[in-house]
Computed example of a mutant assay.
Amino acid sequence: MGVGIRAAGEGDREPVVRLLDEAFQDDPVSGWVFPGEEYRRATHHRLMAAFTDIVLAEGRIDVTEDGAACALWLSVPAGDGHAGGEGGAGEADDATRLRERVDPANERVEQIARLMAQSHPADRAHEYLWMIGVRPARQGEGLGAALVQHVLDRCDREGLHAYLEASSARSGKLYERLGFTFTGRTLDLPDGPHMWPMWREPRTR
């Protein structure tokens, strides 16, 4: 049975934020940005809301028809060093604004935004999978893979590249099965976990 997928609209904002907050509570990167379970549960949703708002405005959010999973995508043109900004001083300003909106006293919000922007490939246009979240009780059913493949099929038809940062070795294995390859250099969070930047060439049929 296929997985029904549709594009999210403004009316989906709150369910998407709740879904991402739930899906990433135990993620190693979220744990680094918001250390401590109580602190994370009180604050993490603000970062998910900021990401959701950016992608609703500038990209595309795909959701499964049952609302159990979602994927946040941005189309990044060649020459744009990172998603959602202008690079250089603008990149730093974006990171600062994100921290001020989400958690002004938490420098790690700004740190991770800068590090991800700096590692983002700038030479070729690509589709950027910013985040993908699956409700914990529904993980392992193939919903995430279906969401990603939904866009990768278009990438293959149109000759588009794709990029993401895997937040765990386990998720990296899933992306490898979908045609992504590790770029060869991890994104290392200070005193924290690694992220695995991954790139995908379009497949010709």
Rank of each mutant, 00 (worst) to 15 (best):
S167L: 11
A57W: 02
G87C: 11
L47D: 00
Y163H: 12
R46W: 04
E107K: 02
H82D: 13
G144A: 03
R157T: 04
V76K: 14
E110T: 11
G90L: 07
R41F: 07
D93H: 13
R18C: 00
L178R: 08
C155D: 04
T52E: 02
P190G: 03
P77C: 09
G59D: 10
V29S: 03
E86K: 14
A145Y: 04
G133W: 03
A169K: 11
R135G: 01
A169N: 00
E165F: 12
R108D: 02
R99A: 02
I5H: 11
R124Q: 13
M1S: 11
D191L: 10
E176H: 15
D103N: 14
F34K: 02
G84E: 01
T204G: 15
E65H: 02
Q139I: 07
D12P: 00
D66S: 15
W73S: 12
G9N: 11
E176D: 15
L20A: 04
A71Q: 04
Q118I: 14
Y128H: 09
H82I: 12
W196H: 11
D21E: 11
E100A: 11
H161I: 09
T52N: 03
M48G: 03
D53K: 00
A117D: 13
R40L: 04
Q25D: 06
A137K: 14
G4W: 13
T183Y: 07
D103W: 09
Q149W: 04
G85M: 07
I5K: 08
Y128I: 05
I54H: 00
C70F: 00
R138N: 06
V148D: 07
H44W: 02
W32L: 09
R157H: 03
R6Y: 14
P35E: 04
C155E: 05
G4C: 14
A145E: 05
D12C: 00
A50T: 01
R99S: 00
T181Y: 06
V33D: 01
M131T: 04
R200S: 03
W32V: 05
E10A: 13
T64K: 08
Q118G: 15
A7F: 06
A50K: 02
H161Q: 08
H120K: 01
H194M: 11
E110Q: 15
Y39P: 06
R40E: 02
G140C: 14
A92M: 03
E107D: 13
E165D: 10
M195P: 05
Q139P: 10
E127H: 01
G90V: 02
A42G: 09
H45F: 11
D80H: 10
T96K: 10
Y39F: 14
Y128C: 03
E65A: 06
A162Q: 06
H44V: 00
L160M: 15
T43V: 14
A78Q: 12
R200G: 01
A117E: 12
S167F: 09
L56S: 02
I61G: 05
V109D: 09
A42D: 10
Q118T: 15
L98F: 09
Q111F: 12
A7Y: 06
A8F: 06
V55Y: 05
E37L: 13
I61P: 02
S171L: 08
H126P: 07
A113S: 13
V33T: 03
